[in-house]
């Protein structure tokens, strides 16, 4: 209970301080939006076919935008040591970062979801699975974001660069721009290792219909990714955290 309320205190602080930081808005909101329009304009697909990719990409970029920035910023502005000496474990501190990123991902993703439903006129075939997927994916990608912040640095741009180096290639073989089964064989092989694949698969299944992997499989793997990334992130951050004080 105590640790949950402190986690929430950290999350609230992140919301105030980091939601409007430049790199977060640029790489979390504008960048994927432009990328998506650039893609959509060049092709002559029915709008409804673009919906799973649109929503998947939105949630992927927005949820993973904030967590990489927080720790390098806290190192640079010298606010980190106060957190390390407060009655707070490193895992609740990380969880506070993740919670803020998770909420950011959910809130911003509501926009493409509303566009899909109200403007494009897509109906959600399986609302429960759809909602579970959105929530799970926001959590998974927020945790993924913390992993980009593992290298010890006080330069947020370094971390943003690393995160884009990983995030950009991922969207090309995760079923964002075309369904998995239409991708070349090598793309299908690669798609298996991307958590975004299972997210777009589940969104496709629960909205416009169609799937490459069984929904239960996708859901299980997405949960597996979330837990594995969380454990990995805690381990690595516990190892590196105090080295940041030397910067």
């Amino acid at each position: 209970m105590k640790s949950f309320s402190r986690l929430w205190v950290v999350a609230k602080k992140n919301i105030r301080v980091y939601y409007l930081k430049g790199p977060v808005l640029i790489f979390g909101v504008f960048f994927p939006a432009f990328l998506f329009f650039a893609f959509a304009i060049g092709r002559h697909l029915p709008a409804r076919d673009l919906v799973p990719g649109l929503i998947g990409m939105a949630i992927f970029f927005t949820a993973s935008a904030i967590t990489p920035a927080i720790i390098p910023f806290e190192t640079r502005t010298r606010t980190l040591e106060r957190l390390l000496v407060a009655p707070l474990t490193i895992s609740s501190m990380l969880a506070g970062d993740i919670l803020a990123a998770f909420m950011f991902g959910l809130f911003v993703s509501i926009i493409p979801i509303l566009i899909s439903v109200l403007v494009i006129g897509v109906s959600i075939a399986h609302p429960l699975i759809f909602v579970i997927t959105i929530i799970l994916a926001a959590g998974c990608f927020a945790i993924l974001g913390t992993l980009f912040a593992v290298p010890v640095t006080d330069i947020p741009a370094d971390v943003m660069m690393l995160s884009n180096l990983v995030r950009l290639p991922l969207i090309f073989f995760s079923g964002v721009f075309m369904p998995i089964e239409q991708m070349p064989q090598w793309g299908q092989w690669l798609s298996v290792i991307s958590p975004l694949t299972y997210c777009t698969e589940l969104i496709r299944y629960s909205s416009i219909g169609g799937n490459h992997f069984a929904p239960a499989t996708s859901l299980t793997i997405l949960i597996g990714f979330t837990l594995a990334l969380w454990i990995l992130s805690i381990r690595l951050h516990q190892r590196n955290m105090s080295r940041r004080l030397a910067l």
Binding site: K13, V17, T77, E81, R82, V85, P87
Partner: peptide, 16 residues
């Protein structure tokens, strides 16, 4: 930790 207060060297409050 609940029982102590700390002012670290060169630490800052949140500027924003």
């Amino acid at each position: 930790k609940e029982h102590f207060g700390v002012v670290p060297e060169m630490a800052n409050p949140y500027m924003e």
